[in-house]
Design a protein around this nucleic acid. Structure first.
Lengths: 249, 249
DNA sequence: ATAATTTTTGCGGTTTTTTGCAATTTTTTT
DNA sequence: AAAAAAATTGCAAAAAACCGCAAAAATTAT
């Protein structure tokens, strides 16, 4: 097998499987590992792949996620945030939870939007605070170091006294049968209070979390008005939720 | 599984769940925990995540450092903060206001101090949040964009229900005759509530503000227990306050 | 076609990287 | 304060990479 031919084969394999092992290539093509290594080195210099200890990785793979996915988690959340922002209009009272998706939402708010945001999430509050036309109401209570939101009876009582137009909730698990579930007792209670207080509940999640279940039940699907993921609303994964009467964006 | 591949997987998991446990990763990927730990360390050095005891945290979510924009007279405030910190002992409940001097205090807290801090100042809360042994209680209410603290009846009511050991107040004006004065109606009310609630009131100020007066009266000098400036306690400028029964540091 | 030259390849020996393990220390939890 | 969990350290084995070097193959020149 010619050198050129061999290298073309290697590139093909890398693009196909996202990774190659020097040892496998060696036995496959029946050349010494040294030769493979030299090939990989040359191909790496040409930017055709990324050489690592033990083999090589596809260029696309390098920085991204495990199974073949092309968009970064951050970009996915940005897409979700962009959709969510459209639901907010001037003068609204909006209650939001914590989590990275909500932060992305906070960062995506148009500068000319003037509304009131209510939250116990410190990172979210910090974002809202920087916005020129957003009024911010902070929900006080003991601050949870993990989730960086205020949690407790005080927070829940305060939320109960409000009637916001919208509630944005970043969720960790949603499932057709079990609805929304989570894994933290206090967070669950807070989310329940938020859902009950709000006129409309909007759930934000990356599609990866759809059809996953966690130990504690938050609410059934009938409490959810809108579900936003990075997927197109026509995606078959979302069809059951549309059937369940949820507006999917 | 290649090392790089494994690390990419870890980064993905961190970005997805905001945190990962070394143990879970270890069983998931089927390598020893030592290997996971070494991976986490390398990724942390590359700034891809934040390593903590037991696993790692996503960076996006945990890097909320409040913009350390040019604090006026920062070095002076650092001196004040160092003195103030000495008043706090383990187990104390400490109420603090906002302002750059308080931020400097928050940053000067020794890492092994374990106490409870209560505040409505978002920048201060962000600082306390980063401290490993400090419990934080957030005072909720409408957030003032100017001062970045929560202001209003709710905040005042909540403060009235507390009995903290210490209250640290950054003040804008102090004068022998008029006591402490300020220029914002709501802030004044909040400060009054804080002073009334606390067992001891500690006022922090740069010497520049001594013997200046502002339009709204906060309290008389007899409510002030300790006054901290960057000056030596023997400085003649401070003598009158010592005579008035205030402890000067 | 043949010799000269260059390129490619495999091999032995050495170095580096990676990984898991055991012992110890540190941190966390109870 | 004790017990449990996790981190650190040093170490050793295995795998992979590296370094010449010389044989083999391919290319070029005569």
């Amino acid at each position: 097998m010619l050198k050129r031919e061999r290298q073309a084969y290697i590139v093909h394999q890398v693009n196909l499987h996202n990774k190659v092992l020097s040892t496998s290539l060696s036995t496959e093509i029946e050349v010494s590992e040294d030769t493979i290594r030299r090939d990989l080195q040359e191909l790496a210099e040409d930017g055709k792949l990324i050489k690592v200890h033990g083999g090589a990785l596809s260029r696309a793979f390098n920085d991204i996620t495990y199974p073949d996915r092309k968009i970064y988690a951050k970009d996915i959340k940005k897409i979700i945030a962009e959709k969510a922002v459209k639901l907010i209009t001037d003068g609204m009272f909006v209650l939001t939870g914590g989590g990275t998706t909500i932060i992305e939402l906070a960062r995506s708010l148009p500068l000319n939007l003037s509304a009131t945001f209510i939250s116990g999430s410190i990172p979210a509050v910090v974002e809202y605070m920087h916005h020129p036309n957003i009024d911010v109401i902070v929900i006080g209570d003991k601050l949870s170091k993990n989730s960086k939101i205020t949690l407790g009876a005080d927070a829940i009582n305060r939320i109960k006294s409000l009637k916001p137009d919208l509630c944005f909730l970043g969720i960790n698990s949603i499932d057709l049968e079990h609805g929304i579930t989570d894994n933290d007792w206090d967070v669950v209670h807070l989310k329940q209070a938020m859902i009950d207080a709000s006129r409309k509940t909007v759930c934000l999640t990356i599609s990866e979390k759809i059809n996953s279940i966690q130990p504690i039940h938050v609410c059934n699907l009938d409490k959810v008005d809108v579900l936003i993921t990075e997927l197109n609303a026509t995606d078959p994964l979302l069809a059951p939720f549309i059937d369940a009467g949820i507006k999917v964006l």
